[in-house]
Design a protein around this nucleic acid. Structure first.
Length: 204
DNA sequence: TACTAGATCGGCT
DNA sequence: GCCGATCTAGTAG
């Protein structure tokens, strides 16, 4: 566990690549969120890619106040607010003006379960169902790890939020499917998750 | 287990 | 006005 947190950060070049490549390579990597003097860590277990020429992407209709971060160089956090209730968190990829990002859909917590539980359910003793429900969806992650509007645009080479490098998963550990919860470009197979992982989001 | 509604903001036509 | 890269609680079966 300690060892796992001492790995180097992913460098900027990692993020400057094609969004579908980056999304798959993010699976199994360790996400770090420092807040209130604590280092919260979790493994990325489910992602979706959203590309520039992709009708389901927020960037499809051009740059705006909201999606501006997507048009920057890769390696930034894009946080958006949706349904009047939830935040979702993305990793910006590719070079500037190629607006693409990876939606982080599920994380397997590695430490500080009590803090995550407090953030999500306002209590620290959870049922088995609640334990799974901590971080098995994009908005749940943001609630558990306290990611919100003010984190939009955070540079992942900084000290606040970043992702650690580790060896790439084998292809046979990754499942590829269509994306969830969208109405356009439903046919694109750009959702990826770690096979058999308990924290992959439930089907809707 | 399966479906449905409600929450409730802000971006965009 | 409309509706969304969601989640939860409720009801019915």
């Amino acid at each position: 566990m300690k060892d796992k947190l001492n790995l180097p950060k992913l460098d900027k070049d990692f993020y400057l690549r094609d969004v579908v490549e980056v999304s798959q390579d993010l699976l199994g990597k360790t996400f770090i969120r420092k807040i209130d003097q604590q280092t919260l860590a979790g493994t990325i277990v489910e992602v979706e890619a959203y590309d520039a020429e992709d009708e389901a992407s927020h960037s499809f209709n051009g740059r705006s106040e909201r999606n501006g971060v997507m048009f920057e160089d890769g390696g930034l956090l894009y946080v958006y607010f949706i349904y009047g209730v939830h935040y979702c968190c993305n990793i910006v990829t590719g070079k500037a003006n190629h607006a693409a990002a990876v939606l982080i859909r599920a994380i397997e917590p590695l430490n500080h379960f009590d803090i995550l539980a407090q953030n999500r359910f306002n209590k620290t003793f959870l049922s088995d169902k609640e334990k799974i429900n901590l971080t098995n969806g994009p908005a749940k992650i943001c609630q558990a790890y306290k990611i919100g509007r003010s984190d939009n645009g955070t540079n992942l080479n900084g000290e606040n939020i970043y992702i650690l490098d580790s060896s790439k998963l084998e292809k046979n550990q990754i499942v590829q499917t269509t994306r969830i919860g969208i109405s356009r470009s439903k046919e694109l197979p750009w959702r990826f998750y770690i096979k058999y992982n308990t924290f992959v989001s439930p089907k809707r």
